[in-house]
C-alpha cells in the first residue's frame, strides 16, 4: 500500500526539484537572461502537478491489490534483479580496464550462473560455452569485421 504511493510521490519530488534547479540556472550572457529557464520551469511545474494528480488517483484506490507488485517480491526475483544490477556496475567498472573480451566473458558468465544456478556439470559447460563463444563472436564482429574500436 505504501509502495504504490511511492512512485507518484517520487514523480512529484522530481518535478519539484527540477523546478528548483531551473530557477537556479545561470543567466544567459546574451539576449533574454532568463531564456534558458522558461521551458524547464513550465515542464517541471507540469510534471509536479501531474505527479500530484497521480498521487491522488492512487490514493483513491490504495486498498486494491496490485498483482504485479506481489510477483516482483516473490521468490528469488528481487535477488535476481539486484544481482543483475550489481554485475552491470561491475561490468562498467572493468570494461575499459580489462578490455572488452575478458570483462564480457566474466560478466556474461557470472550472469548466466546467477540465473541458471550452478548445479550439475551440464550447466557449467553450457554457461561457460555461451559466455566465451558469444563474447568472442561479438568481439570479432565488432572490432575485426566492422573495425569499431573496442577496448
Amino acid at each position: 500500500m505504501i509502495l504504490r504511493m511511492l512512485v507518484p510521490a517520487f514523480v512529484s519530488f522530481i518535478g519539484l526539484s527540477w523546478f528548483i534547479a531551473s530557477v537556479l540556472l545561470p543567466k544567459a550572457p546574451l539576449g533574454d537572461p532568463n531564456g534558458p529557464m522558461y521551458y524547464p520551469l513550465i515542464l517541471s511545474g507540469f510534471l509536479f502537478v501531474m505527479g500530484v494528480i497521480y498521487f491522488i488517483q492512487e490514493l483513491k484506490v490504495r486498498h486494491q491489490e496490485k498483482g504485479i507488485l506481489k510477483k516482483l517480491f516473490a521468490g528469488r526475483t528481487p535477488k535476481l534483479i539486484i544481482a543483475a544490477l550489481i554485475l552491470s556496475i561491475l561490468y562498467t567498472l572493468t570494461f575499459e580496464k580489462l578490455g572488452f573480451l575478458v570483462s564480457t566473458i566474466i560478466f556474461l558468465g557470472l550472469l548466466l550462473f546467477v540465473i541458471n544456478g550452478f548445479r550439475g556439470w551440464k550447466k557449467w559447460v553450457t554457461n561457460i560455452a555461451v559466455a566465451v563463444l558469444f563474447s568472442f563472436v561479438l568481439w570479432y564482429g565488432f572490432s575485426q569485421l566492422l573495425g569499431i574500436g573496442l577496448p
Binding site: K79, A83, I86, L87, L93, T94, L98, I106, L110, V114
Partner: peptide, 17 residues
C-alpha cells in the same frame, strides 16, 4: 552461494584490472 559467487567475481575482476 550466489552472493559468494558475486564476491568471488568482484575480487577476480578487480584483481585482474
Amino acid at each position: 552461494k550466489k552472493s559468494m559467487l558475486l564476491i568471488f567475481g568482484l575480487i577476480l575482476t578487480l584483481g585482474l584490472s
